[in-house]
Design a protein around this nucleic acid. Structure first.
Length: 323
DNA sequence: CATTCGTGAAGACGAAT
DNA sequence: ATTCGATTTCACGAATG
């Protein structure tokens, strides 16, 4: 089931890789709010309106090639035949496979004897392609990473990053004694953080087969052992997602951003959870713009308690009036 | 009635020892 | 491994509109 999905993916990549130039993906659709043009923000894995910043979809998939070309000769050089290599397949998509049809090259059916022989060949082919335990491990983990990233609506770039992190963990012998799923989950979370498209611990844990405790433990372990440089999440990077989930006006969303900015300048950030701040900023902004938005609603979509929102939004408003 | 606000106890987490 | 401090959450009741 998983392998089918991966195959479909690379098929797609093969089909589109040669057609696309470096132009960023542009959707023909228009924004439901203000009829502005929708553009897909590949970096954040979101589709946003150019005019008002409304996020309509979070699940964009990056179909463009992974390289950039600055003129036609460069493009010619870099264009390859076949799918781009990818971190998402355990052999980076380089190996081939013996087909399953019991026919010869001309399409004629094989003799029973030959069938049996092909069966044996296929078996060994499979064994060689997933040669040792590490490769088998990778195969399973990459499937999981792909599954979770899709469920979270993360772009292909991020899936690649997650796969990269997982490979590093595997190379550093960090796996023994830990579950594959835990490390894979941690890799996805780390990749999302690194690319400024953070998903909260809760969100990631929800799509993982592993419970939150083991997941956070694995994540900390990964960060420490691999020296991953991960900056504290920026509250602002949550705002657009929450704002569209709450259906607030773009005025409010903008205000929330500026509130966070002034709060940060006054060092209000330290030690507080970025998600909590983002939630509070949205609520505070709604008050300023006279948009009615209940604490309960914000709490609902952000998974932040109303109490925390209460405590933070006054601070945010104070910081704003001081300036 | 719904929403907001404030409280204290309790849990979770990171840092320091 | 334990302790400590800050933050967050839960549960409740009161106030506000």
């Amino acid at each position: 089931m998983i392998s089918e999905r991966i195959n479909a993916d690379t098929e797609h990549a093969r089909a589109t890789a040669s057609e696309h130039d470096t132009e960023s993906e542009r959707s023909d659709e228009t924004c439901p709010e203000c009829t502005g043009q929708l553009i897909s923000d590949e970096e954040h894995g979101e589709i946003v309106c150019r005019e008002c910043g409304l996020v309509t979809k979070e699940a964009s998939i990056d179909h463009s090639p992974e390289w950039r070309a600055f003129d036609t000769s460069e493009q010619y050089e870099k264009t390859r035949v076949g799918p781009p290599t990818t971190q998402l397949l355990h052999d980076k998509g380089l190996s081939s496979q013996i087909g399953w049809r019991n026919t010869d090259a001309h399409g004629k059916p094989l003799e029973p004897r030959q069938c049996a022989r092909m069966q044996r060949l296929r078996l060994w082919d499979e064994r060689f392609r997933t040669r040792n335990s590490k490769d088998r491990n990778l195969k399973q983990a990459l499937g999981e990473i792909d599954r979770m990233a899709s469920a979270l609506g993360l772009s292909k770039d991020i899936r690649e990053t997650a796969a990269m992190i997982y490979r590093r963990a595997l190379a550093a012998d960090l796996l023994p004694g830990r579950s594959i799923e835990a490390i894979a989950t941690a890799a996805v979370y780390a990749a999302a953080r690194q690319s400024n498209t953070p998903r909260s611990l809760d969100e990631v844990a929800a799509v993982s087969r592993i419970d939150a405790l083991e997941f956070t433990r694995a994540y900390r372990y990964l960060v420490r052992e691999l020296n991953l440089a991960i900056a504290p999440a920026d509250p602002a990077s949550y705002v657009s997602r929450f704002a569209s989930a709450l259906d607030v006006s773009r005025d409010t969303e903008q205000r929330a951003r500026t509130l966070l900015k002034t709060a940060e300048e006054q060092g209000l950030h330290t030690g507080k959870s970025p998600i909590g701040l983002a939630a509070a900023a949205l609520y505070a902004a709604a008050i300023q713009t006279n948009e009615q938005l209940t604490q309960a609603a914000v709490s609902e979509v952000t998974n932040i308690s109303e109490v925390t929102i209460r405590n933070h939004y006054t601070e945010l408003l104070d910081a704003d009036t001081d300036v």
